[in-house]
Nucleic acid binder design. Sequence first.
DNA 1: ACTAAATTGTTCGCTAGCTAACCAAATCGC
DNA 2: GCGATTTGGTTAGCTAGCGAACAATTTAGT
Lengths: 152, 152
Amino acid sequence: MTSSNHNSAGAWAKKYYLASRAVLDATLRPYDLGASQWYVLWHLIHDGPMAQRDLLSRLQIEKPTLSAIVSALVRKGLVAQVTDPQDLRQKILSITAAGRVLWKKLPDPIDLILKTAFQGVAEDDLATVVRVLSQGTERLNNLLPSQKGRKS
Amino acid sequence: MTSSNHNSAGAWAKKYYLASRAVLDATLRPYDLGASQWYVLWHLIHDGPMAQRDLLSRLQIEKPTLSAIVSALVRKGLVAQVTDPQDLRQKILSITAAGRVLWKKLPDPIDLILKTAFQGVAEDDLATVVRVLSQGTERLNNLLPSQKGRKS
DNA sequence: ACTAAATTGTTCGCTAGCTAACCAAATCGC
DNA sequence: GCGATTTGGTTAGCTAGCGAACAATTTAGT
């Protein structure tokens, strides 16, 4: 621990993320649902059926990660995955009847978390957090050589 | 996106954490080492051999997680794990000769990350980030019913 | 038209986190 | 001294993330 704010800001970002995931997981565990699985359902409920590739950008995760999440949801019978007849590469995702039934029973964990975590915190302070972390994230991403849109 | 800072602060905490892990992983990949594995080595290098249980509090992770990390390091021959003759339950961890050799070759990824991420950011702003996130984390942790020191 | 390149998804193998359940050893209470 | 509890570690099974490599399909280039 070098104990300057330069590393503890990052360390707290990690701790906060893990804590929020722990609360989400604990909230959703009775329904046998993971946090990201919940988020996929959320998108399908709010935006209707969509191509799997469209979820990638929304969730900001990589293809293999989404593939695993979707297959878990299909296994549980909450989501249907069918090949798009217009483009046989794509898969169309939609929520099933069982998924809709489950969704109605679920609480809204996101709201719960955000309200307890940042309730009463000044808008200015939250804006500072966003500014510092987003800038830091951008710098880190620029550091990575594995750019997605690179030529050769 | 509800576009208030109440959720984007948390979302950026996640993005920052994942970005920093991506950079750490990319930095350590040539050495076939994960970020947490690196951190275990760091502790063993700086504090000498220690009981596995002492690493739990330092790393702030759960027993099974550490168990997996240690076994990966043992498998790679970087760390030795022997039973403590004084207390046969405990395991003493120490870095091996091969571990020491590897360590000398490694860059210092933590410094790299922190310098690029938060370089030039005002101390006040970093302090705000720490304050907001640590308070948020504490609130979330209080929300969890699975307290560690519970009876019955 | 036909080959080369890009897109979409999956699979494999890894790191890293968790809970629940378990074993073995040590310690506590009586 | 002995049974019950606590402590330290592991195993099993799960979520969630990644890169590399692959197959299938579509699109682009010539």
